[in-house]
């Protein structure tokens, strides 16, 4: 059971929404959350707190390095104590981990970049390097407002700790947070589609009165609900391990599929209007796709899950009767 009652959740959600609506920026965000008494919310129910925070970030199409905190939180006992600020270098499929990756926001020159590297035997370890070792290039083409950058380094790093299961834990926690963020992006996009099709008339009727249109909206809603529940179930699966690696993977796959459904339907029911930059729709589309690709896209993770199942993995039972 949640340590937060429904009224509190509603209230906290509304406050976090206001924080994001006011615009982010790391310092502003941290201060606003502080004022909200965020630490207590997290203590009362870390899963719900993370879900609210990231859903609202998604809903507002905001970007921040909040995800770094979620990931680093799992590494407290693995990494040497930090002397200053740290940021996470997220791996990119197909690129050598540790030397090329994604940073989710601006970093200072002396920020320590935490990355995961893999030796030729497939042993993962954590590396620390100052941000000044990297060259960064803003990722602007696909989702110009994401604030992410592609970081590269040719500096070799010595491993500071073997990753062991901490990589799984960190990645799982990150995946659950991203799942929440994708759900937020989707919910917001669906709201846009609902209000557009309710307001716009063709053939003397609201677009949303045509079954072909309303079915698409209902399908989107069902997909979002499914993702929400998969996420909640993943958090319930194994709270002490940030939800458990397996359940987190399943949740991320579901979120990725959901965004594909919601965005495709959303764009379709907006007609030509949704294709122009004047509409917000394109921002939801590109942000959701970018988030889907972070820490493993849904197509790729689905293959992993299938392979693991065939290899004898037992899917975590989320409900015990």
């Amino acid at each position: 059971m949640s340590g937060l009652d429904l009224d509190t959740i509603t209230e906290v959600t509304a406050s976090v929404r206001e924080v994001f609506a006011a615009g982010t920026g790391a310092a502003v965000l941290a201060k606003a959350l502080d004022e909200l008494g965020w630490t207590e919310v997290v203590e009362a129910d870390p899963a719900i707190a993370t879900t609210i925070l990231f859903s609202e970030q998604g809903r507002a199409l905001a970007s921040s390095r909040l995800l770094d905190d979620v990931v680093l939180n799992q590494l407290g006992s693995v990494l040497p104590a930090a002397s200053g600020s740290r940021a996470v270098l997220y791996p990119r499929t197909g690129a050598t981990p540790g030397t090329v990756g994604i940073l989710l926001g601006a970093v200072e020159d002396d920020t320590e970049i935490v990355s995961m590297a893999m030796d030729e035997n497939g042993n993962a370890s954590w590396c620390l390097r100052p941000a000044s070792d990297f060259t960064t290039e803003a990722i602007t083409g696909f989702d110009p407002t994401c604030g992410w950058s592609l970081a590269r380094t040719s500096t070799a790093a010595t491993a500071v700790a073997a990753a062991g299961t901490s990589w799984d834990d960190a990645r799982a926690a990150g995946r659950l947070a991203i799942t929440a963020e994708i759900i937020g992006v989707c919910a917001s996009a669906l709201e846009l589609a609902v209000s557009h099709t309710s307001a716009r008339h063709q053939y003397g009727r609201a677009l949303a009165s045509f079954q072909a249109v309303r079915h698409q909206l209902s399908e989107s809603h069902a997909a979002i609900e499914s993702a929400r529940n998969t996420l909640a179930a993943a958090y319930a699966a194994s709270p002490e391990h940030g939800g458990g690696a397996w359940a987190a993977k399943v949740a991320k796959v579901r979120a990725g599929q959901t965004q594909a459904i919601v965005m495709r339907r959303g764009i379709q029911v907006l007609g030509a209007m949704g294709l122009t930059l004047e509409s917000e729709m394109h921002r939801y589309v590109t942000r959701a796709a970018a988030l889907d690709a972070l820490l493993g896209g849904h197509a790729e993770l689905a293959v992993e899950i299938g392979t693991e199942l065939l290899g004898g993995a037992a899917p975590a039972r989320v409900v015990t009767i």
Binding site: F142, I267, G271, T286, L294
Partner: peptide, 29 residues
């Protein structure tokens, strides 16, 4: 996959963005 969302200069990767973001128009125009 993820190479679609950031241009790394590799031929035939990021360029699919054009078709992916352009394709919704085919079901509308």
């Amino acid at each position: 996959g993820p190479r679609l969302t950031a241009d790394t200069g590799a031929w035939g990767t990021y360029s699919w963005t054009e078709l992916l973001l352009g394709s919704p128009a085919f079901r509308i125009l």
